[in-house]
Design a protein around this nucleic acid. Structure first.
Lengths: 128, 128
DNA sequence: ATTCGTCACTTGAATATCACAAGTTACTCT
DNA sequence: AGAGTAACTTGTGATATTCAAGTGACGAAT
């Protein structure tokens, strides 16, 4: 049984289709890139900026806010003076791993010139 | 070995990351909805229009064009007089099934009020 | 032979989102 | 005092999306 605090906030859904509902939350060019970065250990704003895709900073801030509001990620200060924030995945966020693994598998099979992810990533199990 | 005609055309990639590359092709609100519809048997323009999400027709035409250009779907007339078109998935398109299955699983676990897809869909194997 | 309906789109106008560059705030370090 | 870093915000112009309506080819019905 999934407890209520582990659920994302769906907001307004286009339909009750699970695929459409997922896309309502994550269906854009940047959200899953951030989830990828979080799954591979990045935690801080500037680390996301440094990813090779080069997310615009205003979009980065907007996506982080949105994903936090939806319960996919968590933001909390890990130090004061000066205050610095760490972003982490919620259980719901971590559970996206299989989606990203399947995307990777697909891309490696059908898009030329994509990196093969580290074996560690592909064989990782989401511990929720 | 994947033969060249089964590859999608990546276009300009933000990076060689397989996840980012997948999102370059499919990272929007509508593309995977269309793939879902195609996987579940829809083939024609008006059938896509009828899906409960209500894709705007100009976007539908644009997405069909884009996905065809990228090698995810195929468009061909299935009758003349009057000419009518059927859209189908290429092997690359059919291979997206596991991605959609994982999205469904995720949504069913973490988004309240999503439909459980038919067992037939969840246990389906992509025959590429 | 005109009208009606269907299919597969296109067009236009309003609104929203995006990318890119620059600026801001709070703090530390030298 | 001045430079540097982290985490954003703001402004501007380009692009994309939504919504509504229109188009053209054809076939069937009146």
């Amino acid at each position: 049984m999934t407890s209520a605090e582990n659920l994302v906030k769906g907001g307004r859904k286009r339909s009750a289709c699970p695929i459409a509902s997922t896309l309502d939350i994550l269906g854009d060019k940047w959200s899953l890139i951030l989830v990828r970065d979080l799954l591979t250990g990045k935690q801080r704003y500037n680390q996301f900026c440094d990813s090779p895709e080069g997310v615009p900073t205003n979009l980065l801030a907007a996506r982080l806010r949105k994903l936090e509001a939806q319960g996919v990620i968590l933001k909390k200060p890990y130090q004061t003076r000066p205050v610095r924030y760490a972003y982490t995945l919620t259980p719901a966020g971590r559970a996206l791993l299989p989606v990203l693994q399947e995307m990777s598998r697909w891309a490696n099979s059908y898009i030329e010139g994509t990196w093969t992810p580290p074996e560690a990533f592909m064989s990782m199990k989401a511990k929720v």
